[in-house]
Design a protein around this nucleic acid. Structure first.
Length: 305
DNA sequence: ATAAGTAGCCGCCAGA
DNA sequence: TCTCTGGCGGCTACTT
């Protein structure tokens, strides 16, 4: 198991965060036999707890597992029991192999590191693999792709529990990008080649967030970028991992979430400031992306100051 | 909630 | 031959 994936979990959930108040997560490390763990690279982690810890956890994170050896029956049992009790199960990278062994992923969407996605699917055909995405949220069962995608997933969980503002505070302290959607691609085929760096496309994309409140069409943007619509869509997708329309909607929903939390603007005002035509358009996109209506979201996480 | 109209997206293919 | 482009048609998703 890699020390990095473990590090993500202990950083996000294990650090003392007095600024978050006294309702923050309690963090505990457990291993199957309660003995110390040796990471790839040789680092030793003196583990404190055994599997009994799983019976008191609300969230259980598996930061990795062997891609060849199945987990022992005691671990499978402990995970199933915890899930039945309502605990959330989370995997990072190859941790999905341990989750899959419990059978709890059958019929569910899931992901893992792209290198191992085929192997996981072959061994557990019941899983609806999504090999391209950063993470999958399947209602109490979360899986994420390789390494750094674990950060995105853990921040997603923080956001669900404490709101976007809290997730942003954690992200800022870690000095990572505040939010990447789960559906974003694991890797970009053309990893920002210098042609884009120099070209107008990356500049254009970088400036888009400032223009969200303005209606933007693909034809306009392609024109600005100095290329045909077809090429614009293609290159936009190569650069960001998703087509421009979808990307815009995600950005707008994200802004709406911030505004709902941080301001008292009416839903109509929020819609306009995000570039949605009206409140009902906002409402539809917001619910499909966030899973709650704008006003419900505000009463849960934000409102006033 | 549904229906008609529009924009976005993408496979395909020919040309550069 | 290989890669990139951009026009076309048709399906999907969004808008009204």
């Amino acid at each position: 198991m890699g020390v990095f994936e473990y590090g993500i979990v202990s950083e996000i959930f294990g650090l003392k965060r007095p600024e978050m108040g006294d309702q923050w997560y309690e963090f505990e490390v457990a291993s199957v036999n309660g003995r110390r763990v040796r990471f790839a690279g040789g680092l030793l982690l003196p583990v404190i707890a055994g599997l009994e810890a799983l019976s008191r956890a609300d969230i259980i994170v598996l930061p990795g597992w062997s891609v060849t050896e199945s987990p022992p029956a005691v671990l499978i049992d402990a995970l199933r029991t915890a899930a039945a009790r309502g605990a959330r199960l989370v995997s990072i990278c190859t941790g999905a192999f341990a989750l899959a062994a419990t059978g709890l992923l059958n019929g569910k969407r899931a992901t893992t590191h792209w290198l191992h996605a085929d192997a996981l699917q072959a061994r557990y055909p019941g899983i609806r693999m999504e090999p391209d995405v950063l993470y999958v949220d399947e209602n109490k069962i979360f899986t994420s792709a390789g390494s750094a995608a674990g950060i995105d997933l853990c921040l997603h969980i923080v956001r669900c529990d404490y709101g976007a503002k809290a997730a942003n505070i954690v992200a800022r302290r870690m000095v990572v990008a505040p939010h990447r959607e789960g559906g974003q691609k694991q890797y970009v085929e053309t990893p920002v080649p210098s042609a884009y760096e120099a070209g107008r496309l990356s500049n254009l994309i970088a400036r888009l967030p400032r223009r969200l409140d303005h209606p933007l069409t693909i034809a306009e943007l392609a024109e600005e970028a100095g290329m045909s619509e077809r090429t614009f869509v293609r290159r936009f997708q190569a650069a960001t991992g998703m087509p421009p329309g979808k990307w815009l909607i995600q950005m707008r929903v994200r802004r709406a979430r911030d505004l709902l939390e941080a301001t008292n603007a009416t839903i109509d005002e929020v819609a306009l400031r995000c570039g949605f035509a009206d409140a009902s358009t906002l409402r539809r996109h917001f619910t499909t992306h966030v899973g709650a209506t704008p006003s419900n979201y505000r009463s849960a996480f934000g409102g006033a100051r």
